[in-house]
């Protein structure tokens, strides 16, 4: 086994342990109403991180197929959340069934058999053309364009975009064979760290809001402070990637910016559907898409940058 994996997991586990201890202390000491809310939110994020690290550990130990199944399930839950909040009609049933039962598994299956060309076009070309056909043959024309667009968006964001994260495993990078799992680790670490650090910096120093109507928690101070810290951590992880430290910093910057954009775009989509959390269907739980919003934008960009500059 590559000893770097053990170091990485030990490092992440250590950081999370410290975060959990701080969270536990804060939840006992903080008394103000707003402060308690923040601490509760922070602890929820830390718990979500533990789950993600555990899933990563399992995926790493059992290899590519398990990784694909886990990301497939993530896409499934995100798509379910998206569709649940979208007011679909009975006439959309056929299109939804095709999205869930054909294109979602197909997308991950194509990664499994290394068919990169079809993986890139299955949803943007074939699903794009087939889904409106399935809806049109039902004969319901009211809001047709809107309904088709909603399902198409849902499939693009939750399946196509997210599937680019595990697709990193099949990139052929000369001199980096057998280590692609670390690229996935790099992507997820930078994205999630950037989310958390932006939140922390925003809470500590946030004054100027980036898009107050779309995402009131996002501030320039948070974006710059959290983003720069995440880029610094990404650059510090250059030794697990095929990049030089400078290239690693550039990649991390691209991931941070794309992740930020994913956060505000999905927040806008969510609000246009009339919800605050993707997971409002189940009280007391955040949605899966609330944690994957930044990944859905960062993964395709990072995948294509790696593919263009580093893959054979």
């Amino acid at each position: 086994m590559d000893p770097r994996f053990l170091w990485l997991f030990a490092g992440v586990g250590g950081i999370l342990l410290v975060a959990s201890i701080i969270g536990a202390i804060l939840s006992r000491t903080v008394k103000s109403e707003g402060g308690r809310e923040t601490v509760r939110n922070l602890n929820e994020r830390v718990r979500a991180w533990w789950v993600m690290v555990a899933i990563f550990g399992i995926a790493f130990v059992f290899g590519k197929v398990v990784t694909l199944v886990l990301f497939g399930l993530t896409s499934f839950y995100c798509l379910r959340e998206f569709i649940s909040l979208t007011p679909t009609r009975p006439a959309d049933h056929g299109a939804l069934a095709i999205a869930f039962y054909i294109f979602l598994p197909l997308q991950y299956y194509l990664i499994g058999i290394d068919w990169l060309a079809l993986f890139s076009i299955a949803i943007p070309v074939y699903a794009f053309l087939l889904l409106p056909v399935a809806a049109a043959v039902r004969g319901e024309t009211a809001d047709f364009l809107m309904r088709t667009a909603k399902i198409q968006w849902a499939l693009m964001l939750t399946v196509y975009c997210i599937s680019h994260a595990p697709a990193l495993l099949i990139l052929n990078i000369p001199g980096y064979e057998g280590q692609n799992f670390l690229l996935l680790f790099f992507l997820v670490t930078v994205v999630q760290l950037s989310d958390v650090l932006q939140y922390v910096f925003g809470k500590l120093f946030g004054r100027h809001k980036v898009a107050p109507r779309v995402s009131p928690a996002k501030t320039w101070e948070g974006l710059i402070g959290g983003g720069l810290s995440a880029i610094a951590v990404g650059a510090g992880l250059w030794w697990i990637t095929p990049f030089t430290p400078l290239e690693a910093a550039g990649m991390a910057a691209a991931i941070v910016i794309a992740g930020f954009c994913g956060g505000i775009v999905l927040s806008a989509v969510k609000r246009s559907l009339g919800a605050k959390d993707w997971g409002t269907m189940i009280e007391g739980h955040g949605g899966a898409l609330d944690r994957m919003d930044s990944v859905s934008f960062a993964a395709p960009l990072f995948f294509h940058l790696c593919n263009y500059f580093f893959a054979a």
């Binding site: 679909t88 009975p90 049933h93 939804l96 069934a97």
Partner: peptide, 20 residues
Amino acid sequence: ENLSRAWPKGTLIPVPISCS
């Protein structure tokens, strides 16, 4: 809630939509 959306009358299989 939502069940008539997840499995409308006249269709063969249900689709995944969260219901309560």
